Amino acid sequence: VTLFVALYDYEARTEDDLSAHKGEKFQILNSSEGDWWEARSLTTGETGYIPSNYVAPV
């Protein structure tokens, strides 16, 4: 399991995006899409895309 933590708040801009709150942890499901990674929030269980530069490894 690849875990990352949000460094900043991010507000989803499309229905495919996933909002993130600073300190929230995510499981990365797919990081092969360049700057946008598919992730699952460990807080809400929701999945979507987050900007890779907004997260760091735990």
Rank of each mutant, 00 (worst) to 15 (best):
E11C: 13
T43L: 13
E33K: 14
T43H: 11
A56R: 09
V5M: 08
L7I: 11
Y8A: 09
I50V: 05
G23K: 01
N30D: 12
A6E: 02
S32E: 11
I28S: 01
E33G: 14
E38K: 10
E46K: 15
P57M: 08
V1M: 13
Y54G: 08
I50H: 01
S52W: 11
S52H: 08
K22C: 08
E24T: 03
G23T: 02
Y54E: 02
V58L: 13
A6S: 05
R40G: 05
P57A: 10
E11N: 09
R13P: 08
E46I: 10
E38M: 15
A39G: 05
T14A: 11
L29D: 04
N53K: 14
S19Y: 05
L3D: 05
G45S: 05
F26E: 01
G23I: 01
D9Q: 05
V55C: 06
G34L: 11
V55N: 01
T47M: 08
L3S: 07
S41W: 04
K25I: 15
I50F: 03
L3E: 08
E46Q: 14
S52V: 07
I28W: 02
A6I: 05
E15T: 12
D35V: 08
V5C: 07
P57T: 05
S19N: 10
K25F: 15
I28M: 05
G45N: 07
E24G: 01
A39S: 03
N30G: 09
R13F: 07
H21V: 14
I28H: 00
T43P: 01
L18K: 00
D16H: 15
L42R: 00
E38A: 06
G45A: 04
L7D: 00
I50G: 01
V55R: 00
W37N: 01
W36E: 04
E11Y: 09
V58Y: 12
T43F: 09
Y10F: 15
S52I: 07
E15F: 09
N53C: 15
T43Y: 08
G23Q: 02
G45V: 02
G45R: 01
L42K: 03
G23L: 02
P57Q: 08
A56T: 11
N30S: 11
Q27M: 13
I28E: 00
K25N: 07
V58W: 14
F4R: 00
A20T: 15
A39Y: 08
L7F: 02
L29C: 09
E46H: 11
P57C: 10
G48Q: 00
D9E: 06
G48K: 02
Q27Y: 14
Q27G: 02
T44E: 03
E46V: 10
T2M: 13
D16T: 15
E11L: 10
P51C: 11
S41Y: 04
E38I: 15
L3C: 12
T44D: 03
G45I: 04
E33V: 11
F4P: 00
A20Y: 07
S52D: 02
H21E: 08
D35K: 07
I28V: 08
T14E: 08
Y10D: 01
E38T: 09
A6D: 00
